[in-house]
Amino acid sequence: MTVKELSSSPSLSSLYPKAVLGGLRKSGGDILPDTEFVRSGVTVDPAHLAAYNQVCEFRLADTLPATYPHILAFPLQMALMTEPDFPFPLLGMVHVANRITQRRPIRVTEKFTLRVRAQHLRPHEKGKQFDVVSELLSELDPAGEPVWTDVSTYLRRGGASGQKRERRTELAPPAPKADWRVPGDIGRRYAEVSGDRNPIHLNPLTARMFGFRSAIAHGMWTKARCLAAFEGRLPDAYTVDVAFKLPVLLPAKVAFTSWADDGGWAFELWNARKPKPHLRGSITPE
């Protein structure tokens, strides 16, 4: 594996033009690059963390929400997926699932090393999918084991594999534990704290260019918002796993529900006006 050591966080303002230009090329084959991006000396800006917590409705605390390190890893993920040898253009890829494992509470004052790589390219009924794996290692853990791991699964549509599609039976949505109003500007607000300025999230005009009738909420915002609903009940070590279903068209009213499941929880986010799920997930103690 080729390791690329970075001395600073990649500039997202320069990576987005690369992503746009990359969208003009065809998909480039079936081989993911054998490359890992590594950045040491990563620290958390408490003011940025506070802004993130406010947007996602986490409480202010001296530990990180499990979804926050995804924000630290995002520039490295972008750098990896805009490299010339990456087989798929970034524009048009769909974030279909995300699994985060936190092995202990992570304090704001820690210093970290980040590692990001792509792996497990495989067929999908609608094209091909692969995982981008991000790991956070703390200088407080001399053994060098990750304290946090994030696996984001992406779908590249086209060239369907011919796999037989599983029949899914959609049930009526369960009685919600809470109804949330999602404001029309949440895409722009989350973009400010996450750096993810994909035009589908920013305003209706740019979203329509990609086939959406309005801007849509970031999938990782919906995951973070759901996780915030469990604050005060989460164990020190756990995995939170979600599958992203239908996008949340902004503004929106959504229904959140959760239930105990095998020592942890299962949860769903639904369109409050129609029986259609936006997200399904689980929280499992480690």
Score class of each variant (00 low, 15 high):
30 D>W: 13
33 P>K: 02
33 P>T: 01
36 E>N: 00
36 E>V: 15
38 V>K: 04
40 S>M: 05
41 G>M: 02
43 T>W: 07
43 T>F: 03
46 P>G: 01
47 A>S: 05
48 H>C: 05
50 A>C: 10
56 C>Y: 11
57 E>T: 09
58 F>K: 02
59 R>T: 15
60 L>E: 14
62 D>M: 03
66 A>K: 04
67 T>K: 05
70 H>L: 09
70 H>M: 15
71 I>L: 12
71 I>Q: 03
71 I>T: 09
74 F>K: 10
76 L>E: 01
78 M>K: 08
80 L>I: 06
80 L>W: 01
83 E>R: 06
85 D>P: 00
87 P>W: 04
89 P>G: 05
90 L>G: 03
93 M>E: 05
97 A>Q: 15
105 P>A: 07
106 I>K: 02
108 V>I: 10
108 V>T: 13
109 T>N: 15
113 T>P: 11
113 T>K: 11
114 L>C: 06
114 L>D: 15
116 V>S: 10
118 A>I: 08
119 Q>C: 07
120 H>F: 09
120 H>T: 14
121 L>G: 07
123 P>Q: 08
125 E>V: 14
127 G>M: 09
128 K>D: 10
129 Q>A: 14
132 V>R: 02
133 V>Y: 04
133 V>S: 09
134 S>N: 15
139 E>A: 14
142 P>A: 09
143 A>F: 12
144 G>P: 03
144 G>T: 07
